[in-house]
Structures are given as structure tokens and as C-alpha cells.
Design a protein around this nucleic acid. Structure first.
Lengths: 227, 227
DNA sequence: TTTAATAAGTGCAATTTTAACACAAATTAA
DNA sequence: TTAATTTGTGTTAAAATTGCACTTATTAAA
């Protein structure tokens, strides 16, 4: 240290762990890398940070490049900086995890040959990307226990079952239906609509939406959820 | 993205939030910056990352530069990357927080004019360093609720009172003595020695040490502490 | 039209965890 | 000998969590 002169600069990248939920499983969006090294292998979506670009902006840009989406839920995980993590050239990467809905409306940029994978079925990833995914999963799990989750991952209207399945997918364990409903209701963030979803059962199940104001308030406050 | 050519490199730094405990208050170690910009102002200890150096190694090196200590508890916080966070030159910084004992044996490198401050009394810091400290505090608080803490911050032998005071300093609230002792004992990580510390009271209070094996096991396992 | 099948919807009791609380014991300085 | 100080110790009430089973609505099939 002492001053800025003679300090060497380093390549800086962002890699995005993009989570989605298909009403059944938690998934991640991976791309097939089209340049060396590791060309043709599965990878997180990533890109380099420009000198005049905030890290958060770079993450948003990179995510938009792939999905066309803006205003996505995006949160920094941490920096990954082993010297040889990228064998081609020293690159430090900052991991971000994103939550997006899996929707027909979202058109993925063809250029990247992206594909959704169930977390459990994900292929081997390049570099330290598998570590990033594992870290992101742990982070998402912690987040689900301390703040409401689902707004970013579920369709606008959803059934109680879907919400429970989402929690189960994130936490990796089965939850008791009655206890789950009691706890979610205690949070007071849901609005029950008059509508029923008739696809899942003969009886049909009521659709809910999030009360966005209350939801956001709970996100701020946080809580300690024992599901 | 697409390839590595024409990608611009960026200056990368590490800044350390160094926590200590003087048996009374939680403190942070700050330095007086001796170069521009912001020369003469209080700052976190920091330095640049070398091209052939892992980020973790850089953090250890920088901490060692100031304290002479090795094998310090050091954990990455996150990366700070606003474009103008350092007005002199675009620099992305990765924050690390460290836990070290405040001891007479530790000789601080004079060159940095370092000084311990109570968290509450800390001066205004340069750049976004105050944000880093706030983030580190929040992280430390969360850590204290999920894993044992104290091994890195307390002297080898300590009283129950000291441990409680440490928790109170980290959590920022007073704790009930009896409940605290019950919970700590339930963790089963302490060894009671025969010795008493006679400084704090006429009666004297028993000294404890950590059972390092059990302590480390609990660090791995984690728990959910409601103090 | 009746019956069978399916998932939705609903509450309570037992257990565990957490929170609140006060006084006696040991020691030394006055 | 007395006063002052901090240590050390359990119980009880309240709150949170867990485990558990039957009825309802509806449609597809018989």
C-alpha cells in the first residue's frame, strides 16, 4: 500500500446464479460457454465489469443480456479470488444470485444456449461455479428463514400448495401442511382471491397474491422462521 | 463478454474491519491514512491485491502488516464497487472482518498510526468505510447467534462475566445473567478451571477456557441462539 | 345418477423453549 | 466486626413449536 502508483490492475468479472421455480422444483439457469477456456461446458452466466460501471450495474447488465429482464431481484454473494480459478487469466469474480420467474414470456437470448436445470441435476460447472451455486443455495435457504420469499419466484397468483412447495424446494425438507399455513398466515402477507386454480385438483384450490406493501415491510423487518 | 481480449482491468483492494474486545467494549482498529486522497483521515486498514495473490492471502498479508499476527480469524464480507467510491481512481474493494485479541503482546506497526476505537465512538471514516463497518457489525451479530464466538476475542482464560459482556457488546443489548449462563452451559463448550480471577470482585470468579474441540465442532454445526 | 378418487382445507393438545425473576455466599476493605 | 461488592444458583409462567386425522368439494368413471 502507501499509494496507488505501480499497483497492478486485475480482471474483474461477475457471475450470476439465476434461480427460478417451475412450481415443482427450484432451478438454475446455466449457459453453454462459447469461448475458450472450457468452451462448450456448462457455466453460470457471467461477464466482465467495465471500468466505469458499478458492480451491481454490471450484474444487472449481464442478467439482462441473457434474459431481457430488468428490475430483477439480485443480491451480491461474495467475491471469488483464488489465483488459478480461471486458468486462462487471473480473474476475480463477484457472485450474484438472482430470483426470476420461469415464464413463457421471458425470452432467453439464444446466443448463450441457456437451459434451466434442477439444482440436483445440474451438470458439472466450469471453474469454481459449482461452489458459487452451493454458496448461493445456502444463502437462499438462510434468506427464506429470515424474510418472506416467493414474490420474485412465483406467478402473480399462486396456490398455498405452490408456496409450500417453493419453501420445501429451498429448504430441502418436507413441511407439514397445516403448520405451514398457520405460519404463513401469521405473517399476514397474503391476500386470498376469490379465484380457484382448477388444474391441480378436482376440488380446486384458492389462489393467493402477495400484499406487496406488507410483504416489503416484512422483508425490511425480517423475522426468525422456524418452519 | 465473449472473450478476454480488450477487457479492461481494475484496481482491486482489500479493507479490513478489525474487531477486538477489551473486556468491556467491542472495538475496531483504525489507521490514520498517510497518503492522498484523504490523507490524515481515519480509515480501515487496507491494501491492494497483487495479480498473483489470492484475495484471502491479501487480506492476511494486510492484517499482518499492521498487527504482526498470523492465523487470525478472517472472513470475507462482500465487495464494494460503486464507481466513485474512491475519488482518486476507480477501485473495487473487498471487505474482510477480523477478530483479534487486544493484547499487550501485539505490537502494532507504528507506520500506520493505528488506534483502537469503541464502535460507538469511532470517527467518520473515509470513502465507504463506515458502511463496511456497519455491515461487519451486522455480520458479527448474526454470527454470534449462529455459532460460538469468543475464542478469537477473549484471553485464554476468562470469566463468565467477560463472556457475557462480549455477547452484550456484539448484540447491543443487555442479557439476563442466569439465562445467559444456562444457555452457554447448554452448549457444552466451556471448561471450568480451578482458578479464580480476583480482580473483578472480592469474592472472585471462576475462570473458564474453551474446550477447543467442542467449540470447533459447534462452529461447524451451528445453532440457533436466542439470547 | 351414483360412486370412487383426489387434493384442499381445517384445530387442538402435548411438548419444548424462552423469559422473567431474587436472594444467599464469599471475600476483602474499612 | 461490619459494610460493600460481585458471584452464583432454580423455578415458574408464558409462548412457540410440533405432531397428528378427518371432512369437504369436485369431477371422472362406472
Amino acid at each position: 500500500m502507501r499509494n496507488y502508483k505501480n499497483q497492478k490492475k486485475i480482471l474483474l468479472a461477475v457471475d450470476c446464479i439465476i434461480f427460478g421455480f417451475d412450481n415443482k422444483n427450484l432451478k438454475i439457469l446455466l449457459i453453454k460457454r462459447d469461448f475458450e477456456p472450457e468452451k462448450g461446458h456448462w457455466s453460470l452466466m457471467g461477464g466482465f465489469i467495465e471500468p466505469d460501471e458499478a458492480i451491481d450495474d454490471a450484474a444487472n447488465r449481464i442478467l439482462n443480456d441473457l434474459t431481457g429482464l430488468d428490475n430483477v431481484y439480485l443480491e451480491q454473494l461474495r467475491a471469488y479470488g483464488a489465483v488459478d480459478r480461471d486458468p486462462f487469466e487471473r480473474t476475480i469474480s463477484i457472485g450474484y444470485y438472482a430470483l426470476i420467474p420461469i415464464s413463457d414470456k421471458t425470452i432467453l437470448n439464444k446466443e448463450f444456449s441457456a437451459k434451466w436445470f434442477n439444482i440436483a441435476d445440474a451438470p458439472k460447472l466450469i471453474f469454481d461455479h459449482s461452489t458459487m451455486v452451493a454458496n448461493a443455495m445456502a444463502r437462499l435457504r438462510r434468506r427464506a428463514l429470515g424474510k418472506p420469499i416467493g414474490f420474485e419466484l412465483l406467478p402473480e397468483k399462486f396456490t398455498m400448495k405452490q408456496l409450500q412447495t417453493l419453501y420445501e424446494a429451498i429448504l430441502g425438507e418436507e413441511l407439514d401442511k397445516r403448520n405451514f399455513i398457520n405460519k404463513i398466515n401469521a405473517l399476514d402477507i397474503l391476500l386470498k382471491t376469490e379465484e380457484k386454480d382448477m388444474n391441480s385438483s378436482r376440488k380446486g384450490s384458492f389462489l393467493y397474491t402477495f400484499d406487496e406493501v406488507k410483504y416489503r415491510r416484512k422483508v425490511e423487518e425480517g423475522f426468525s422462521f422456524k418452519l
